[in-house]
Design a binder for these strands. Structure first.
Lengths: 328, 328
DNA sequence: TTGTAAGCGTTATCAG
DNA sequence: CTGATAACGCTTACAA
């Protein structure tokens, strides 16, 4: 593990000159070559920790997401990675598991590791971003809002999506439409539910027993669907507020020998890896990757000193009606 | 952003004492309290960059994986996270996208950021771990072998899995058994193929046209399946060497109106998020999470100075025969 | 253009 | 038990 001093010694120049060569500042061609040769010979890699301590900033950005096992977020991550890497930043992924404590811990690490910026899909409504912002670290909110902080944000229209999905089910002829949404303290869950509520109320079909909160994962969707089907008057269709819960709900349906003809379904978010896309399901397609790309672009602008007022970008989701109603 | 000096000033002690309190070394109860109070008042967070520069090691471990969109690896990641966090380490995920260059870049970052250790599912046969090992950074290989370096490794038995899967298809009455495996330079792809080859040869059914290499992703599985079905004598069953390619292969099958009765299928790795698990598919279940847990345990032992010879741990995979052959 | 030297925030050594 | 002080490896005024 060689240092800049050893390279300098071997090249016969000062450490400062080595540093300059590494950072591409004015150095004579001659010394520049000398330094490169020496660095090559020693297999020198600059110590990022030292650099980051000195410069008060590193070249890595943190992407903090609530569930690394959800393809929606990994797809978003790919988007972030692509633009970040192109801009010379590395991305480290931090999985909070929807746990506010883990989230706080990762954010604290982000500051104390001098990370260049943070893209955050918040697990909690009550994240404290003050320490980050005080230190001038840019934060971009993605998928879930900034909760009282003045940040750039990239989102989808959750309320409209909830509305469209629910309306689509009415249009398909269903009338008792339930909603399986996420944890009641997660903003996206609230808004998608809100969209559903608007439409069922407008159609005179509101029934609070048809609302289930679950954990945004497959098992949550299963449990909620079980409960719904156990009601004395079960719903005849259900709007499921995320991709993984849709999988769980469909599992329950199919295991009971039911189809999406018996119980209509609309999913907020694409079904992950569906080997056979249940064509009976209405899908609100989310631009996951694009969300990540956009967030990364905004973040990098901020890192580069952009100082305009905070922007909120809302990306469109596309709805696709079922091509034919059935179990497959 | 307060420093240890400001805390010291406020507490009326020396910076060294603050550091001692933070690190739990002998300090009088009295001063200890003073320091804690001061630290609390200032919302002090120690600067990890500085600490890591001084100690030549940070509290983060890198998990380097080839495809963050593959649930096998994210599930592994969850295993790693759980044990790492319990041991006081944070995990950052680095997605190499099966690209040796990105991989090299992340490994270089790992050394230059003084990361405590690396868990590596190698994208390339030719990773150069020398710089890491020279600096004493422990590396544990997971899923894919250490390729010439003397490392701890945690693996599954790929050859046996390939054999069992293929044999299961024979046992189900199929006779022309194809293999869709991964890139020819990826070790797991080679070994799973090898298992297949052993069994088809033993059964006198070897046909090299039935071997397809693809990219370990859904589209790869689709393309390979398309090619296989286009052969003059198509196979009547196929062993698919990873989960995502199995999804692709099944998609093609179902889209053509075929079922796993027409074309038998065995998958190395669980089908991700299958809403309706195609029961006609034989599955080699992989202990993804357990792989991660084990790798993390080994790594942490090494970080703590364990110095015994390198160990290779092979975890068992379970095979589950199809409960009934069909399309659903 | 180049070198010298100070400093980023810790921790560890060494006296006291 | 506690306090100065010297590193850790790099960048960046400031001089030359």
């Amino acid at each position: 593990m060689s240092t800049i001093y050893e390279v300098a010694a071997l090249a016969g120049v000062s450490p400062a000159t080595v540093s300059r060569v590494l950072n591409g500042v004015n150095v004579s061609a001659e010394k520049s070559r000398l330094v490169r040769d020496a660095a090559g010979k020693l297999a020198f890699t600059p110590n990022r920790t030292a650099r980051s301590l000195r410069k008060q900033s590193s070249e890595v950005i943190a992407l903090v997401i609530p569930d690394i096992e959800n393809p929606f977020f990994t797809s978003m991550a790919r988007g972030v990675e692509d633009v970040a890497q192109a801009a010379g930043y590395s991305v480290v992924l931090c999985n909070t598991d929807e746990d506010p404590d883990k989230e706080a811990s990762y954010l604290s690490i982000a500051v104390s590791e001098n990370m260049a910026g943070i893209i955050l899909a918040a697990a909690s409504d009550h994240v404290d971003l003050a320490p980050l912002l005080r230190r001038g670290r840019p934060v971009v909110a993605v998928d879930r809002g900034p909760h009282g902080f003045d940040l750039d944000a990239v989102m989808v229209d959750n309320i409209a999506g909830g509305r469209e999905a629910t309306q689509a089910l009415y249009d398909q002829g269903f009338s008792r439409i339930a909603c399986i949404t996420g944890p009641s303290d997660v903003e996206t869950a609230q808004r998608r539910e809100h969209g559903w509520r608007q439409v069922v109320i407008a159609n005179g079909g509101h029934d609070e027993r048809y609302l289930k909160h679950a954990n945004f994962r497959v098992d949550g969707g299963r449990a909620a669907m079980d409960e719904l089907l156990a009601l004395e008057t079960p719903p005849d269709a259900v709007f499921v507020a995320n991709n993984l819960m849709s999988v769980g709900a469909l599992q329950v349906l199919f295991e009971r020998g039911l189809t999406t003809e018996n119980v209509g379904m609309a999913s907020f978010g694409d079904l992950p890896f569906s080997t056979l896309a249940p064509r009976g399901v209405t899908i609100i397609h989310l631009p996951a990757r694009h969300l990540g790309v956009t967030a990364a672009r905004l973040l990098i602008e901020r890192i580069n000193g952009d100082d305009q007022p905070a922007r909120t970008i809302v990306l469109r989701n596309e709805i696709s009606a079922p091509t034919s109603v059935g179990s497959a």
